Simulated scan of single mutants.
Amino acid sequence: MSRAPITKKGSERLKAELERLKSVDRPRIIAAIAEARAHGDLKENAEYHAAREQQSFTEGRIAELEGALSTAEVIDVARLAAGTRVVFGATVDLEDEDSGEAVTYQIVGDLEADIKQRLIAVSSPIARALIGKSAGDSFEFKAPNGVKRYEITGVNYDA
């Protein structure tokens, strides 16, 4: 089984989520199920069914996080010395060659990717196009809405 890369920061975030699920959410859900059971007939007890459904989602997420963290290879981005070359963990400043819009992304593991936080998965098309390039290089990749062209204006590893 291959080990999935994850940044140190991403690993810490996922471990914190796992700890919260186990120590806060799980006990709260168990208490909600017990309270709903006390109301009597379980067949028509909406609170009971909602709490059981929430328990199922929470236990699934706990299992997903435990599995992912057990096979993850944590990479400390601050210790990488790739210079201006783009590798896993790099924070890359880009400029859209068509619109001139500037954007910054960090290339992270699949499990920790979150486009809202500008964290892109190493397996994404843009990350695959970036890997191996250097500051000053231009590149293009096929996005869902057509071919995009960017210039790399900066690369850093300040996690």
Rank of each mutant, 00 (worst) to 15 (best):
I131A: 06
V103N: 00
S70F: 01
Q117P: 00
T71H: 14
E66V: 15
K9V: 12
G83C: 08
A127G: 04
A38I: 09
V147N: 11
A72M: 04
V92D: 10
G60P: 13
S11N: 14
S70Q: 10
I29N: 11
K133N: 06
Y48L: 14
L130T: 02
V87P: 05
Q106P: 04
A63W: 11
R61V: 13
I62A: 01
D96C: 04
G60W: 13
N45P: 10
Q54A: 14
A72C: 08
R52Y: 09
Y157I: 01
R13P: 05
D137V: 02
R26V: 10
A82I: 11
T71K: 13
K142D: 07
G146C: 00
M1F: 09
Y157Q: 03
I30A: 12
A121Q: 02
A121M: 06
I6W: 08
I131T: 01
A34S: 12
I30T: 08
V92A: 11
A90T: 00
F141K: 02
P125S: 14
H39C: 04
E101I: 02
I75A: 01
A159E: 06
A143K: 01
I131N: 00
D41A: 14
L119D: 02
D98H: 00
A72F: 09
R28L: 12
A82R: 09
R3Q: 11
A32T: 12
G136E: 00
Q117S: 06
Y157R: 01
K15W: 12
A129H: 00
K142Q: 08
A50Y: 13
G67T: 12
G154H: 05
E19P: 02
G100L: 07
R20K: 10
V122I: 15
A159S: 05
A143R: 02
A82L: 11
A16W: 03
I30C: 08
P144K: 10
G60C: 10
A51I: 06
M1S: 12
A36G: 03
H39V: 13
E47W: 09
I33D: 05
D110G: 05
A113E: 01
